[in-house]
Write a protein that binds this DNA or RNA. Structure first.
Length: 557
RNA sequence: UGCCUGAUAGUAUAACGGUAGUACGACAGACUCUGACUCUGUUUGUCUUGGUUCGAAUCCAGGUCAGGCAACCA
């Protein structure tokens, strides 16, 4: 199959650059997170793009923390970001920090002052905003704009020395207050913040703005392709202006559309709110679209990378359907996850003609999709647990499960026939009675019978009690961020259902956090770190597709 | 009423002047010791109006719609 995937527009640019030698035959990208939150699946797209591009074209990718705002940043975030990138399967060339360049950035600023292209501003934030004009009306020049180079140099040095309070002075680029691009109206380069920085400590009290740090950092590192999201398009002329006036390595910026997923929010601000206001258990809550949340939910790195590759890279806004992510993980886990029997909503089933006290070891395939997965033994006895929904006293048409007089196969075991039930005072079924066909044993069935349904089970005396956490989408609407009012009012109150006492097959007692299984007919589950030696905890990653659920929902209408 | 992006099935993406294709979803069926998987089939699309051309999703012009831009955030 020589079917080649067509190149995305950034790959096309890279190939052109490589062909015409404009980057010296090099590809050096960077992934530049601000360490003020955890990475989410939107970042994964950027990571896959940046690292993937470098891999494809024999280049490299730097990890650079954009840590120019000390009040929002923290080393906790630095650590989690590192871990998540590694987990996704990528290795960076150099680990760098914008704060590594503070001294050099300061010199750059001095250079621009000397060229008469930067000046110290006295105005307050409000005054600066007022002088800036609006998108449809030009701004006006600040009185400070005409300060002499000498005075600017002196004032800027005194800013650095800490002679001024926060907000008292700023350094601005002298460009064009009438520019149709608001970002070119004498943008701020430096502001005063007497704040402790997570890496530079109290060494600095002036910090460069994004626009005077990002492009310069790219240039210092000789980044060839600086890839960012669409909202930075209007910054590009400024990015280029600084590089030109500073006469430094010409990195170039390219923009792509960020990834959006429906039924969730992606902005760091909103995710942070969910965590801080305890709507979720933490940044790694399995309902979160964070890398750590998806990991805990049971998503694999490969499935996330796969999603990022499937959605492509382009410049139009998009919202990816959650079902595509689910497809990616099901596709992988179907091939790799061992099957197991787990009864989530147990009801007791007694086989009246099976000898009491007898225990058989039955053979069970670990994964029919993987011939090398081997098999395991399952204990079988006269008292089992089956799923409550697998028995109905008055079943509708096309119900291929157990009912009075109905036959069904117990997976890997025998065909049984429903005989009767026992109920409590409220009419709830407490025990189902059935008979089995000894000659119908799996692997050696001589009964000549075929039944339409097969159900899962566990032996009551051998089953292990487990906690199972069932997750659903975090929000009830497709785009909670775009709805009127507070996005948190659209939180799905049933997004987490905890089953304290499910029963799983005995072998699962040995499962370790991170292990993944397909609970037959129920979905894919992974072992949560909250598990204890005696009681495993399983997170449902995703359900299996369920044709019967659709069928019965249709019938209910 | 300025500047900048963008617009192809429900969603996402391809076609780079020459048959509008792929994936996910949905629907129908086959198979099944998982109502899973797999397989088969069906459905739905080039924002609009002109122009250039033998030929336009693609090039040009106008319009419409959507998103972004006026933080001492990134």
């Amino acid at each position: 199959m020589s079917e080649e995937r067509s190149l995305n527009f950034i790959e096309q640019i890279v190939e052109e650059d490589l062909a015409n030698g404009s980057t010296g035959g090099r590809v050096l990208t960077r992934f530049p997170p601000e360490p003020n939150g955890y990475l989410h699946i939107g970042h994964a797209k950027s990571i896959v793009l940046n690292f993937g591009l470098a891999q494809k074209y024999n280049g490299a990718t730097n990890l650079r923390f954009d840590d120019t705002n000390p009040v929002t940043e923290d080393t906790e975030y630095v650590d989690s970001i590192r871990e998540d990138i590694k987990w996704l399967g990528f290795t960076w060339e150099k680990e760098l920090y914008a704060s590594d360049y503070f001294e050099q950035l300061y010199e750059f600023a001095v250079k621009l002052i000397k060229k008469g292209l930067a000046y110290v501003e006295d105005a307050t934030a409000e005054e600066i905003a007022a002088m800036k004009g609006t998108p449809t009306t030009p701004g006006v020049n600040s009185p400070c704009r005409s300060r002499s180079v000498e005075e600017n140099l002196d004032l800027f040095e005194r800013m650095r020395k800490g002679e001024f309070k926060d907000g008292e002075k700023t350094l601005r680029a002298k460009i064009d207050m009438a520019s149709p691009n608001m970002h070119m109206r004498d943008p701020l380069m430096y502001r005063i913040k007497h704040a402790h920085h997570h890496r530079t400590g109290d060494k600095w009290c002036i910090y460069p703005m994004y626009d005077f740090a990002h492009g310069q950092s790219d240039s210092i590192e000789n980044i060839t392709h600086s890839i960012c999201t669409l909202e930075f398009i209007p910054h590009r002329p400024l990015y280029d202006w600084f590089i030109k006036e500073l006469d430094i390595y010409p990195s170039h910026q390219y923009e792509f559309a960020r990834l959006n997923l429906n039924y969730t929010v992606m902005s760091k601000r909103k995710l942070k709110q969910l965590v801080e206001e305890k709507h979720v258990a933490g940044w790694d809550d399995p309902r979160m679209p964070t890398i750590s949340g998806l990991r805990r939910r049971g998503y694999t790195a490969a499935s996330i990378r796969n999603l990022c590759e499937r959605v492509g890279v382009q410049k139009r806004d998009n919202v990816i359907e959650y079902s595509l992510l689910e497809f990616c993980i099901r596709e992988e886990l179907n091939k790799t996850a061992n099957r197991a029997m787990a009864v989530l909503d147990p009801v007791k089933l007694v086989i009246t003609n099976y000898p009491e006290g007898q225990v058989e070891e039955l053979e069970a395939e670990n994964n029919p999709e993987d011939p090398n997965s081997g098999s395991r033994k399952l204990p079988f006895s006269n008292t089992l647990y089956i799923e409550r929904e697998d028995f109905m006293e008055n079943p509708p048409k096309k119900y291929f499960r157990l009912g009075p007089g109905m036959m069904v196969r117990l997976k890997n075991a025998y065909i049984i026939k429903g005989e009767g039930v026992e109920k409590d005072a409220d009419g709830n079924i407490t025990t189902i009675y059935a008979t089995y066909l000894p000659e119908s044993k799996s692997g050696g069935d001589s009964s000549g019978l075929t039944v339409k349904g097969t159900i899962h089970w566990v032996s009551a005396a051998h089953a292990v009690a487990a906690e199972v956490r069932l997750y659903d989408r975090l929000f009830t609407v497709e785009n909670p961020g775009a709805e009127e009012g507070d996005f948190k009012s659209f939180i799905n109150k049933d997004s987490l259902q905890v089953i304290e006492n499910a029963y799983v097959e005995p072998g699962l007692l040995q499962a370790k956090p991170g292990d993944r299984f397909q609970f037959m007919r129920k979905g894919y589950f992974s072992v949560d770190p909250d598990s204890t030696p005696g009681k495993p905890v399983f997170n449902r990653t995703v359900t299996l597709k369920d044709a019967w659920a659709k069928e019965s929902a249709k019938a209910a209408k």
